[in-house]
Design a protein around this nucleic acid. Sequence first.
DNA 1: GAAACGTGGAC
DNA 2: TGTCCAAGTTT
Length: 346
Amino acid sequence: MTEIASDLLRWYDRHARSLPWRSAPGTNAADPYRVWLSEIMLQQTTVAAVKPYFEKFTALWPDVAALAAADDADVMSAWAGLGYYARARNLLACARVVAAQHEGGFPESEAGLRALPGIGFYTAAAIAAIAFGQRAVVVDGNVERVVSRLFAVETPLPGAKPALYALTNGITPHARSGDFAQAMMDLGATICTPRNPACAICPLRSHCAAFRTGAPAQFPFKAAKKARPQRFGTIFWLERDGDVLLVRRPDKGLLGGMRALPTGPWADAPPGMMDAPADADWVLGGETVSHVFTHFALDLAIARAALEKGCAGNWDGEWWPMDRLDAAGLPSVFAKAARKALEEIV
DNA sequence: GAAACGTGGAC
DNA sequence: TGTCCAAGTTT
């Protein structure tokens, strides 16, 4: 074992974070279901955001068989607000494959895990190491940052990924590789942070080439980002007798599979009343709703209309009680728009 | 390999 | 206020 690994594990034994999906200190009973669930939720998502969702999911569905038997709509609603909704669709698909084809247990090999929906190279390695005690090279964003600093890697990301993987492989021990991976992530999250790393208390300071340069925060180098385009759209708030019309978005694409307010197209200029869900006297609200996605920003106008009580018609959606919208499982952008629409009504 | 894919908190 | 960022995967 390298000195880096032994120093890090010694630090981890004293300073490991206590997290709901980790087994209690001193025990060695990581539940693969909980490890898997937490790893999926933690993809591109902060620990603070994940905690309440993890508690909710494990309370509703305590094991993979329970989750596999759940209704799609219930799982999507429970995931609402956490983002990256393809994860929730893949979560269910994965649970059903595991329950049906693996006798309720997850495969233990990286290759077997990698074949499941929603499990890529990182997650397969993490589960193999953390839940099954296998020696695996676990490289996430934290590890990339820590390793790029340890070795002062000047190649910018993402091009540096193969080199960072090889360097991580070189310091990953055969014993306790799951603890090593979690220790690297704890270190990256609490000490070797993106800005203002706390080198003064870092257990790996004496091994760190970036520390010796005097400017550790400049690592990892990154390629320049592209500008985020601005788009515009209209959401349609259609009332009828205390209900509002909701739709289910297509499975593929943005906010796929989620319940939503009807919208028109999202375009480079405000599209007005295009694609309104009904022929009605639409009134455009005074304010817009702004929301920022990963790859574009959106400005939504709110058009409101009311239909006669008992008005018949053929709508592609469901009428939902306006005072129960919290239970609809709307993605944040629509929850935000709904709040604004309700404010304007009053 | 690049682009798509959410959200909220920190600075 | 704008930018960056968080335990990535899929197409």
